[in-house]
Design a protein around this nucleic acid. Sequence first.
RNA 1: GGGGAAGUGGCGGAACGGUAGACGCGCUGGCUUCAGGAGCCAGUGUCCGUAAGGGUGUGGGGGUUCAAAUCCCCCCUUCCCCA
Length: 829
Amino acid sequence: MGYDFLPIEKKWQERWAREGIFNVEKDPGKEKFYCLEMFPYPSGALHMGHLRNYSIGDMLARFLMMRGLKVLHPMGYDAFGLPAENAAIKYGIHPNKWTWDNIEHMTEQLKRMGCSYDWRRRVETCNPDYYRWTQWLFLQFHHKGLASRKKAPVNWCESCGTVLANEQVINDGRCWRCATPVVKKNLEQWFLHITDYAQELLDSLDDLPGWPEKVKIMQRNWIGRSEGVRLSFALYGTDIRIETFTTRIDTIFGVTFLALSPEHPIVEYIAERSPARAEIESFVASCMAQTAREQAAAGAEKEGIDTGLLAVNPVNGQRVPIWIANYVLMEYGTGAIMGVPAHDQRDFDFARKYSIDVIPVINPPGEAPLDGATMTEAFDGDGIQCNSGIFDGMPSSEALPAMKDWFVSHGWGEKEVNFRIRDWLISRQRYWGAPIPIIYCDRCGAVPVPESDLPVELPLDIEMKPGSNPLEYALEWKNTRCPVCGGPGVRETDTMDTFICSSWYFLRFASPWTDKGPFEKADTDYWMAVDQYIGGIEHACLHLIYARFFTKFLADLGLLEVREPFTNLLTQGMVIKDGAKMSKSRGNVVDPDEIITRWGADTARLFILFASPPDKDLDWSDQGVEGAHRFLQRVYRLVESHLDGLREASAEKLPMEHLREKKDRDLKRRIHYTIDRVTRDIEEEKQFNTAVARLMELSNDLGSYSPSSEGEWRLFREGVEVLLTLLTPIAPHICEELWEMTGNEGFVSERPWPSLDESALAPDRVTVVFQVNGKVREQVELPAGMTLDEMQQAVLEADAVKRRLADKEIVRVIAVPDKLVNVVVKGQA
RNA sequence: GGGGAAGUGGCGGAACGGUAGACGCGCUGGCUUCAGGAGCCAGUGUCCGUAAGGGUGUGGGGGUUCAAAUCCCCCCUUCCCCA
């Protein structure tokens, strides 16, 4: 017959579904494992990145199930978002229909992959049963004062027609979704106060040994904690004070100017009093048109304008000019900086361009003192204080803490910890998202929708038009009653950032059917935290921080026991073809459907797991896929061509001590070596490519073993069954089929993982390497377990060694049991 | 500029400080063939050699060690993230 994979895969997928073998319920008496892959956006079809993500996750879930754990392995859809609106406009399909059609199609695809999900638990974030609770969570943030509306300069994507959070502005100030350059707008927006959790988000990274160091570093950098001093400069001749923050209070005597962000609120006040009012206003206008990244880039041209007004340095009363500068960002610190050109490169560039004084206050140790007039770059290293009053002569490393105390004790400022992470801007001026449950009332202000009125359902009878939010025109929906006073009210038409929806979906999987809350504590108490989370590294500073934030907040509400959602994180590498990431724009995509139709899901899964370790990039190779397919064919033939013998052979295993022949002992050893290595490769090393390699070796050895006696058949049967069981998490369909063909009952997917017979691992003979001065001279097969003395004897008798030892003085002999002997001699050997 | 990851055959990739190149792909030769992207056997880092056997070899250069792809220092290159 041969390996006819399509009907085989269909048959087993149907049987698994019929028997519901992957449905799981909590069982407090049993150890659990929560295995989760990042759920997809239902864009229409799976791509190779998904296939890789879900092959890895499914293999782990199936492996752990066979290891006897209660495995929660669910799947869902991150189903709100802009592409649905774009499709609606482009093809005239309602976002709702477009999304649900895609969800059904992608679910079919996942089933065709043979994934072991408990499909009863599927969630869709666009389902009112789900987003009801997203809205409920927003209200909890609101009650706790952690959701608020404020006016701020925000990132605006012209193409998406919406604002973006800071994390969502990437690569040279572009939109994370469409790569359009982001511009600034001053808008009133909803924010979640993630900064309240900044310190904990930072600290508890240390409690995550199961996360890649790389991701933790990225998060630490993103959170960006810095300790410094908040100080204010008086606006000369007024009572107004301008706040700044610095980590380098040791350079306070070197301040020669103050620089304000063009967006700083005080700029307006200053402009009114400045002789250069018109110039300031036009300068500010031109800055607002620049992208954030243009402003911040270290190499970018620094522009500024002198306001003609002065600020007073608190430590020495010195008056310094106030400038407005494009390189000062409103969103970092206070939006104003003290300019110390001698010790900060950006300030230095700016000062030189506009001929501002440069006053060195730290001299490099052991070198000539700096001269502000002639220095060519800022000095930001440690050195000796100068021009710093009573601190002159002190090493700057000591001066920093000393000056901090001195400064604070004089009441000029206070110590402050500053974070780079900003509050999370969550409003989106889009239709296809979870409505923010707020009603505006002229009398009562912004009023939260009562929990009993949730969900605030998205109206479906809307008209999609480019560049606008249909909710603005959905008057029947928009106009409502104020929940407090009953007067006329207007609904918030902004919807929530979809990252809100994905910040808690892993909790919903624990109790997807409950309507009493977002989840039931008894369920999350059992299932949480996620033991293994798998997904792309691109979410390092987005989803993964947001989800941690939500988890901590929910723990503080008493709704969760855990404070971290994901115990172990695996960030899979990209899928590469022809030297570049697979992408539509590069035209190097391979369609998962095509691969599964042509080669089968098992082949696709096997190739993906074999081609490279999960955290590294994977080079797609059509020939590699064929190779994977050939391996499965060989396994199929191996079983098919030995069917009668396998069926008749006793399932009773022969222990090692009953095996006499070398070939039998070698096979037995290979079988248990494979169990040992495959188990460790999957469980400890997370190195699935070598696990597959070990299975190929076992298969090769079984292929060259010709059983004839009853005992040999028993051994062969053990080998085949071990091969099929170990291969099941990787290529489940073919294994089920072969398992059934050999006359076994039930699903191999439900078999326990083979147990290791340690005694079968010990080798009878070993290849020992003889070296002279570290160079391999001979390889000899010796009985295992020789003493070091015996090994040394053996080495001196070996011809290749003897030849090189003539007339040489042996300095020492090093022997590693069962491995090698190295004879060290004087001079060249 | 800062941070991170990585550099090993023709290719994907293996190697607790202990035989470098497992496994697979590709290639070469042979066998077989109800010709299919099939199977089987042998070979395959490189240089010298018919061979036996040597030399050499993990981006480059130093170092530690009986022994280094692996540990330490310097340099080069590529990719990613952040400014």
